[in-house]
Every structure is written in C-alpha cells, then in structure tokens.
Design a protein around this nucleic acid. Sequence first.
DNA 1: ATGCTAAACGGACTTCACCCCGCTTAGATT
DNA 2: AATCTAAGCGGGGTGAAGTCCGTTTAGCAT
Lengths: 205, 205
Amino acid sequence: MNSPVVPLGKPRGERADAARNREHLLATARAMIAEHGTRKVTMDALAERAGLGKGTVFRRFGTRAGIFQALLDEEEHRFQERVLSGPPPLGPGAGPEERLIAYGRARIAFLVEHHAIARAALDRAQPIPVGEVAMTRPHIRMLIGQAGLSLPHPDTLALQLTAALEGPLLLYLSMDEATAPPAEETGHPLAESWQALVERVFQAG
Amino acid sequence: MNSPVVPLGKPRGERADAARNREHLLATARAMIAEHGTRKVTMDALAERAGLGKGTVFRRFGTRAGIFQALLDEEEHRFQERVLSGPPPLGPGAGPEERLIAYGRARIAFLVEHHAIARAALDRAQPIPVGEVAMTRPHIRMLIGQAGLSLPHPDTLALQLTAALEGPLLLYLSMDEATAPPAEETGHPLAESWQALVERVFQAG
DNA sequence: ATGCTAAACGGACTTCACCCCGCTTAGATT
DNA sequence: AATCTAAGCGGGGTGAAGTCCGTTTAGCAT
C-alpha cells in the first residue's frame, strides 16, 4: 500500500521553500515596478534584490514575461470572480448582450489599470498570451453562443472580438494614450465604442 | 548658384554604397529566413553572412525588428497599390462596406502569407507596430466615415476593427493555426468571420 | 533521529540585441 | 586630379535573457 490519506487538494504542490520564494519574488517585483517601472525589472536585479540566485527566478517563472503574468494572474483571479459569480450585468443573471457589454467595459478598465504589467506580460516567443486572454476568449464565445446568433464561425468571431477588446491596449495604444484620457464622464472611448460594436453585432438575428 | 538640375526625387538619398548594402542585407535576410526561419536571423549571423560589420546592420535598420519591417514594407507597397488604385472592390469604385470586406479578406491573406515576418516585425519596445498597421487603421477609418454610420467614436471603432482584423494573426494564433487550414473552399475562417462582422456593423444606420 | 532522493538553489556561462567610436570612403567641390 | 568632409563602416564592448549543472535541502520513510 502506498499512501496516507492525505485529504488535501494540491496534487503537485510545490515545496514550502519554493512557495515562499515565489511570494517573495513577486513582492519584490511589485516593489521594483512601483519604484522604477517595469523596464527596470531585470532578472538579475530582481534576483539580487530578493537575495536569491538567478536560476531560482527562472525556475519559478520560466521567463521574464512569466513574472508579469504571475503578477497579473493574481488580479485576474479577483476579476474572474466578479465575472463568474458577481452581481449582474457583469456576473450571471443578465442577458448575453448586456453581459458582453459589461464585460468589455470592465475588461477595458482592468487593462487600463494594469497596462504596464499587461504589456510586459506579453511574450513574443509564445503566440498566445497565456494568462490574461485565456479567460476573455472563452467567455465571449459563451455569450455569443447563448445569444444564438447565426454566424459562419462563432469561435473565430469570438477571437476577433477578443482582439478588438484587448488588442488596442496590448498592441496599438501608447502608454500615454492608454492611461491619459479618463476625462469624459461617459467613460473611456474604448468602452463606448465597444458597446456600439456589440450592439450592432447582436442586432441581427 | 548651388546646383545642377538633378531631376530626381531623393531629397535625402542615402549614399550609393549604403543603398547597395541595404539591398544586400535584405536579400541575405530573405535567404536566411527561407533556410532556417526568422528565429535564426540574428544580427551577428546576418552581418557575417552578408560579409559586413554588425554596426552596419544596425545603422541600416536600427533594430532587429526593423529588418523585418523593411522586408515587409516591400510587400506592403505592392499591397497598398492594389488598395489605392487597383480594381474594385479592393480598390476604389465599390461601396464602403464592400471595400471593407474586400480589404479584410486581402489583408488576412497577406498576413497569413507573411505570418512569420509580420510577427518578427513586432517590436515590444515601441507600442505601435509602425509599418504594417500604419495603413490599415486609416483605411478602415476612411471607409467607416464614407459609410456615414452613427457612432460615438469612429476613430476608436476603427482602431478596434483594426485589432479584430490583425490581432488574431499577430497576437493570438500560433504559427500552425495561422498557416494550416486553408482547407475549405470558401476561404479562411477569419475572412468569413470578418465579412459577417462588417456586415453587422454596417447594417444599422 | 537518521538517511534518502527528488526538488530547489545558485551562479557561472552562453547568446543575442544594441552601443560606441576611431577609421575609411563616396562623392561633391574646386 | 586633388582635396575635403559628412556619411558610412567595422567590430569589440555592454547589459540582459535564458541555460547548465554541481551543490544544498525539504520532507518522506524507516
């Protein structure tokens, strides 16, 4: 017989020291970002400031982008919670169109708020920005499905709407443009425009 | 009196040797890409294989991404020509909706064909992928304007449609996904889906 | 407690993008 | 043709990402 009745839920839990170091590294990274911006967060500097070896940093995060993805994932969880079980229209309980509009607005706010980190989390090596986008596409896909639109390729449209939502902030807008104009009381232009886009897409059966 | 009647159009022409080297470098880069893919095109390797100094490569292209941007620009010119003065519906002469659909289809084909280079041309330093996108956004903006849609922020919608069109191939799809399925005779799913998207956006006044 | 081993660690090493600056040369001027 | 100089050139230098591998240690088994 092999094993004790370990009732826990971490099938491949990392070792205690490893977990401690991950936390410490993330905290250090956050501090460095707050002080000098993402640009100055180099693997060497991070390792040194955390008092750990560079190899450890790479073991934990795999890649520089991985650090920022991990950072983002923490926030992402809170966000995801609001979407999966928060109050409508962002959470369940509203119609698909309403939810999709709310999702876009919330997502844009999220990306604006975490703009620097979100961009730093992009890794031009691997094509799919893992953490972030991971939830947007399936969520949009689901809402499109619920709406029962007649489309040639719902999966593909979901992908294109994902790009329409996140692309501007990840690819095209500069730091200033993205962060600067919270001005108008109606909200971010991207949010207004997203709503118009969704309304038009949902309009026809 | 200053000058001879040089009738030509290069206000700040580069020196003959410089131009020759640029061509040579681009040709060498193309060869290297064909043989081993973009990944193996390093600045050192390119310089060595071209028989030039590394400094020269940087002087000509500024950055690694610059090489791929230059490579893309050549193709881009041909493409732009077709859009600006080719036959409709891609060129002028058709209605805005028809033209936008045609533009998307052509653009997707273009990006699929040059997928590797287009991705390598992305530069995570500067936010705006200069070469490529440069023409897509204004063109979409113009067609939206011509259609006279009533929108809160036409410029922003143009940006979002640009992202919807180019984002999937630049950000989200892997090499295989992007290149693989030319299968169906109706065309690339991205193209079909783009058409549906545009039709819906244009549907309401 | 003691031993065992897989996991974690550290830091030197490699590779690559990009910088710097003294030398060379195209090509305009006379 | 000879001269002059701005532009071009070369390649060694620097900083940062990512790899390797020998050493250390957490945490289980006895």
